Computed example of a mutant assay.
Amino acid sequence: MACRIIAFDIWGELAHFRRFFTTSSPLTFSFPPPTTVRGIIGAILGLQKNEYIEITNRLSIGIYITSPIRKLRTGLNIIFTKRNDGKFEPTLFKDKKGNDKKNVRTRIQVEFLKDPGYRIFVAGDEKLLDSLLNYLPYHKTEYTVSLGLSECLADFKFTGEFTAEEVEETSEIHSVIPTRKIKNISLSNQIKLAKERIPIYMNAERIVQEYDNIVFETSGKPIKGAFKNVFHIKETGENIHLFTVPSQQMSKRSFEKDAKSG
């Protein structure tokens, strides 16, 4: 089965894709989960917060790490937001704060990715792909693009439009890939593998419907072995996995092109 794929590179100085099991000291995933990528696409197209999930769930997403994974931790000062009676208080007035020391700020440790870079592959809904082609090649967006947090601004570059063919098995994979699609991995070459459990897709109520265990090479090198049911891009020779939302979960709403995109 052949499909149409659009690819773009995205990078920045810092990124933070918060792991779902961390609270007061947030840790980050090593790459943007498909749920985050859908938010990036929504920002490019100018989709509203209450609609982008439902619309972008019609897309399949591939993620290729293009820069080595490097992480750092730093302290952030955030506003102490509890009032004397325990309610929300976002101001900087000490006499309104709820702890004995009347702290205006509190300090937390946050993990960031340093100089991250990724290649994003997008397939699926033809109208959405056509709309992306009105933005990506011209370096246009409706909203500012970031890597997780709004403070982690990102830049991007259109890579191209390609044709991909689904193959039953391949000996090399370039993108991140679920463990269930790995038959075996060759450790003969020098690679650094890691595994993370990430959210795959959310419903319109922003509730995660599926998680999966993902394997990746931390410096972006291809992984050799045996991998099943992936896509081969004819023009570049890359083999990638595409994260696809199950059809029964996908919205049937039609997507009309934004008149401003022309």
Rank of each mutant, 00 (worst) to 15 (best):
V208A: 05
F216P: 04
D212C: 04
V167I: 10
G160H: 09
L187Q: 10
E168C: 02
Y138W: 10
Q209N: 12
G237K: 07
T159W: 10
N229P: 07
P199W: 05
F158T: 01
L153P: 00
E151G: 11
C152F: 03
F231H: 12
G148I: 05
T218Y: 06
I182K: 11
T244C: 04
K192I: 14
E235N: 04
K228I: 13
N184C: 11
M202E: 15
N213I: 07
E169Q: 13
E169N: 13
H174N: 15
K228Y: 09
R197A: 07
S186T: 13
L149T: 10
I185D: 11
A226M: 08
F158A: 00
L153W: 04
P178S: 13
F162Q: 05
I200C: 12
T218R: 12
T159L: 10
S188F: 05
E196Y: 00
I182A: 13
K181W: 00
P222G: 12
E166P: 00
L187C: 07
L136F: 08
D212R: 02
L187M: 13
N203W: 08
S171T: 13
G220W: 06
T144I: 12
E161K: 04
E210V: 02
I214G: 08
F227D: 00
M202H: 09
H232P: 00
N229V: 04
I233T: 04
Y138L: 10
V167G: 00
P137M: 05
I177S: 04
I233S: 06
